[in-house]
Amino acid sequence: MKNAVAAPLTGVPTPDLASIFGGFFWVGISGFGSALPFAQRMVVERKRWLSDAEFVDAMALSQFLPGPNVVNLAVTLGGRFQGPLGSLAGVVGLVAAPLVIVLVAAGIVARFADSPHVIGALRGMAAVAGGLLLSASVRIARPLWRKREPWPIAIAIAAFGAAAVFRFSLLECLLVLGPLGLLIARIRRHPTSS
């Protein structure tokens, strides 16, 4: 797919496979929690593969598609510069080191699984992770309140209830609420023609 291959910013050479691997390797080992700020730093500031606006557009695509957002970014950028092998280099670079680290950590934990100290440590960490997730949810929900449109808030609350309370599957939530939200958005955009 040669047409997928494109150049980065003027004056910056097209990144080769090693550079793609290395760039996303750095993102993988740097990103605690969300890797996206590190992806922005690597792609725009350090390597100058994309301008700010191009990065925002690539990010919009990665969030629009299913799957892990930062993995999608590695696929689309790697693919843009070096085709399918570039995508592979980006993804492998991104996940290789974190995979080894998390498996070694889990192995150590499993080895001392009977120790009350290890059980207690995991319990304490899980509580902090709960706090981390709750605060992230609030941060992500804030822009919905600022828009002052009631329907996205209603859709979000319905999705929360469907997934957390009624335990509907992700697919069921998306198939019902996604089109419903889209329908409302279309009607709000063209109120006269409907």
Partner: peptide
């Protein structure tokens, strides 16, 4: 914007 609203609810869930 529709998918974003669904995501917000799912992440909170």
């Amino acid at each position: 914007s529709s998918l974003n609203a669904v995501s917000v609810g799912l992440i909170a869930a």
